[in-house]
């Protein structure tokens, strides 16, 4: 199974599902942008900016997944702020040190079966 991210114009394959260890993430380079992609314990996929607004370093892919109440979350590995993975908002602080809102962009993510698609394409 392939994991795909929508970059605004099209779905781009970025890795296989096996590359994603449940509870952890990987970083993806997408035409110059860095995206952090995760798979949670129940198999759900999440993709957000890799840039940590609090440290300015591209490290969120190395953070830890978890939950707060019933919301799935991501904790930054740098200073441990926690982000809500359903809307990208930081649950601990509203703004980053530079005054900008501490919200991560959510990237659409899905799995696709490349063999199925290949079959479909060749049939077409």
């Amino acid at each position: 199974m392939t994991v795909e991210i929508h970059d605004g114009t099209r779905w781009q394959p970025v890795c296989t599902l096996d590359d994603l260890q449940p509870g952890r993430g990987v970083a993806v380079l997408l035409d110059g942008a860095q995206v952090a992609v995760f798979r949670d314990r129940t198999g759900g996929l999440h993709a957000v900016d890799n840039l940590d607004p609090f440290s300015g370093a591209h490290v969120l892919s190395r953070g830890l997944l978890g939950s707060r109440g019933d919301r799935p979350t991501l904790a930054s590995p740098m200073y441990k702020q926690v982000f809500d993975l359903t809307d990208g908002r930081c649950l601990d602080e509203d703004t980053a040190p530079d005054g900008s809102p501490a919200v991560l962009r959510l990237w659409p993510v899905r799995t696709a079966d490349p063999t199925a698609r290949a079959a479909k394409e060749s049939a077409a």
Partner: peptide, 10 residues
């Protein structure tokens, strides 16, 4: 309960 977090996991 829940999914855990950066406190309990480590």
């Amino acid at each position: 309960r829940g999914e855990g977090c950066e406190v309990c996991k480590p």
